[in-house]
Amino acid sequence: MANRWRGEVALTVNGQRHLARLSLGALAALEETLEVGSLVALVERFETRAFSSRDVLALLGAGLRGGGAEISDADLAEAEIEGGPVAAAKAAAELLARALVVPE
């Protein structure tokens, strides 16, 4: 089960369940890779539904690797994600949100 307070999100890729999570380093790399000036700008892309499939793949790839999976962005782009593109986008948004939530 995914631990939301650790920022984990469950995702099934190619029939294998993974726990994904974003580290601070991954978030910094995402800012550069996705050419956003801040995490707030990246969050706004998802809040306004202005995100791209590239955003989703980058977030999922970083999250999967942060959770211990050895998968490249190229392999992820060809992978079967349970639930399809909608589930992938939802998982990416949850990863981003959980990485920035402070436990009460």
Rank of each mutant, 00 (worst) to 15 (best):
M1Y: 14
A2G: 00
A2N: 12
A2S: 13
A2W: 11
N3S: 14
R4T: 12
W5L: 15
W5Q: 15
R6N: 13
G7N: 12
G7D: 13
E8K: 07
E8F: 03
L11N: 02
L11F: 03
T12V: 05
T12W: 02
N14Y: 04
G15V: 01
Q16T: 10
Q16K: 14
A20Q: 06
A20E: 08
L22G: 08
S23A: 09
S23I: 01
L24A: 15
L24P: 11
A26C: 05
L27W: 13
A28L: 12
L30P: 02
L30S: 06
E31G: 07
L34M: 08
L34I: 08
V36R: 11
G37A: 15
S38T: 11
L39Y: 06
V40N: 15
A41M: 07
L42H: 05
L42T: 04
V43T: 12
E44M: 12
E44W: 14
E44V: 15
E44A: 12
R45T: 05
E47K: 14
T48F: 09
F51G: 02
S52G: 10
S52I: 05
S52Y: 02
S52P: 04
V56M: 07
V56S: 00
V56K: 01
L57W: 00
L57P: 02
L57A: 01
L57I: 08
A58Y: 01
A58I: 04
A58Q: 03
L59P: 07
L59M: 05
L59I: 05
L59F: 08
G61P: 00
A62P: 06
G63V: 02
L64Y: 07
R65L: 08
R65H: 00
G66Q: 07
G67I: 04
G67V: 04
G68D: 03
A69Y: 01
E70M: 07
S72L: 03
D73S: 11
D73A: 12
A74R: 12
A74S: 14
D75C: 02
D75P: 06
L76G: 01
A77I: 01
E80Q: 11
E80S: 12
I81C: 04
G83Q: 05
G83A: 09
G83W: 10
G84W: 07
G84R: 00
P85N: 14
P85G: 15
A87G: 09
A87S: 10
A88D: 03
K90H: 11
K90D: 14
E94F: 13
L95A: 03
L96T: 01
A97M: 13
A97S: 14
A97E: 14
R98A: 05
L100Y: 11
V101N: 07
V102D: 13
P103H: 14
P103W: 10
P103L: 09
E104G: 15
